[in-house]
Design a protein around this nucleic acid. Structure first.
Lengths: 195, 195, 195, 195
DNA sequence: AGTTAATCGAGACGGTACGTCAAGTCTTTAC
DNA sequence: GTAAAGACTTGACGTACCGTCTCGATTAACT
């Protein structure tokens, strides 16, 4: 049998995730080691291996614990003005990505999912998908309100909004800032308007 | 002093880059090791360390050697029909990304540039930027030909085209295929049309 | 903290020392490597580095484990006849030195203590000193028995006995055999006799 | 063919031997490297490999160049007083051994000849043998002068004199000083006197 | 409340790869 | 042809972590 979760030490769990966050911010993902986490958390290595199957899995939980508010129901504000609602979301996304502590954590996970498709699947399911879906939902409301052309595929539109932002951030093709987010939004909205 | 490049063994250089490509495709970037490259290439480790400062740098040169045709002048076809010209490029990009051997190589580099900004800068300068710029150039021609609205920022438009594609591919938010590329193109072009 | 000796694997310890003895006899000290010992003993390199600080220290323990009977109480035979007692010891020393397996081991340590004074100190304290002292003790008995002149410094006399033997063996100034040992003994005894 | 000695650069030869002496004194034999010698001497490595077959051979020549006065005819003083003549020699030997610069050089060679019997043979032939023989010659004179018993084997007597001194020095069984040399001489002479 | 069994901190173990150093060989250019 | 220079392959160094394993010492659930 696997480990018995009911006996799990919550003290150890929290110390591990917290140490992981601190260490990634400090030394980066590449130099993050299981031994380093264990010793920083005052924990035996086996305790980590018992509950997580990889360094990436630990890191991912460490991120989730922080972003937990975004789990479950994610909903966009609906002020009636689609443009300003989307602008708020895009600017929030940019702000999160460029905030230094988050930047490192997020990049680490992104690098890892290039290799580890299990973690990738979980990342999409628990963090990205809800966000994208919520955004698509808001656009559909816009369609019903006549602010967006009826022929528009809301899911695709959302990817047009987030894609360029992540592209800049991940591939470092230019500086990522609010101006860029606004530019993307304006151009995409042009394509969405009813004709 | 650093090493004397004029005495560099071309035989060794090529064997290293070739072995690197083979090994990444075979075992992936994470399990790619300098020792593995050296032994597969029939080369001393020191010869690798003499000319490259990291595993990523070797890999990057390994990719460049293959994509070298894309270096220098990159120009898009200009059939007069902007839409079909761009469609060709986007479909080509998608085809390259999903081709298995390339997929691994490209993901490895992308993972690496999350950490190594030196390699990131070089990747952008030598591979991505030329491609993006060439594409922007083609759009500017479209503007002059009246196919695209004069107020459009060509550089931004290009990122709207490539961003969503890389987003899907890197974050694995959905399947990346030609249909998706076509969808992106259609929606973006709607926003570019003169009004 | 240093390693915790109570957790030390005796299996590994013995395998290392045994492999070391085999390898020195086989390839000699110069070509003896930590990696070679580790792999012959089926042990990780770190396990060697954890418990010994140098190749010489391992070798030295490997010798001690074999010569352990000589540790602690070393006493010479006392048949009442000083000459024949000493002859026995000197011949034994010569026999040990020229026995091929021992020869290599012993030369290796001797070479090493030219450089490593820590090992030198330990070698003297645990192997040579007890032997020399035991021999001096026997000579003192000879003094009390009136077989040796009362003015003789027993410690010095012992060095006159062993010195020439080791000199021949280490500097290879001539062939070392029992005849030589007998010659040394005879001449030294002449100087020891009461007048 | 081997190298042509007539074309040999004396400048290089001297620089190599001098650098070798400096380096042994500085870092010891173990950390003495061919590369280090080459670079300190401003010489290509190949120049060393061309003319010497091992590190020990270089070192040995480096020593010989300095001790060259002892080569060829070595003769002891003959004041008519055997005891004081021998005392002079023994004290000189001790003085040489304990002089720091010499100590390192000499120990290095001694360590090396435990392994390299070719160098050992040359060391004995060119340095030790002449010294020992000269000393034996002086003792034979003592025999003819009636100061030493006619039955004495002069060669053996010499080894009784030098053996204990080298024994102390090489095995570090005690402090080597002039007092010890005197003690050895006195005790040996007792055994040599005619009865 | 006492027993029992899993988890805990700790850290040794057999390994793999690291990045460095030096060995001895080979090639190039200058004298 | 020898010399200086230095790149080359090879192999060992000593270190850092890997993931597994064993050791008491808790600790939490079940008699």
């Amino acid at each position: 049998m696997g480990p018995d979760a009911s006996r799990r030490s919550d003290r150890a769990r929290r110390a591990i995730l917290s140490a992981t966050r601190d260490l990634v911010a400090e030394v980066g993902y590449t130099r993050l080691t299981i031994e380093g986490i264990a010793s920083a958390a005052g924990v035996g290595k086996q305790t980590i291996y018992r509950w997580w199957h990889s360094k990436a899995a630990v890191l991912f939980d460490a991120i989730l614990e922080v972003n937990s508010q975004e789990e479950g129901r994610v909903a966009l504000p609906d002020t009636g003005d689609l443009e300003s609602d989307l602008r708020l979301v895009l600017r929030g996304t940019v702000a999160t990505l460029i905030e230094p502590a988050n930047d490192r954590l997020q990049r680490a996970v992104t690098a890892e999912i290039q290799t580890d498709t299990v973690v990738a699947e979980e990342l999409v399911r628990r963090l990205l998908r809800p966000q994208l879906d919520a955004c698509a939902e808001r656009i559909k409301i816009g369609i019903r309100a006549g602010q967006v052309d009826g022929s528009v595929d809301a899911g695709l539109a959302v990817e047009l909004l987030f894609g360029p932002i992540f592209h800049r951030w991940l591939l470092r093709t230019g500086e990522l800032d609010q101006t860029f987010a606004d530019g993307v939004l304006d151009m995409v909205l042009k394509g969405l308007r009813p004709r």
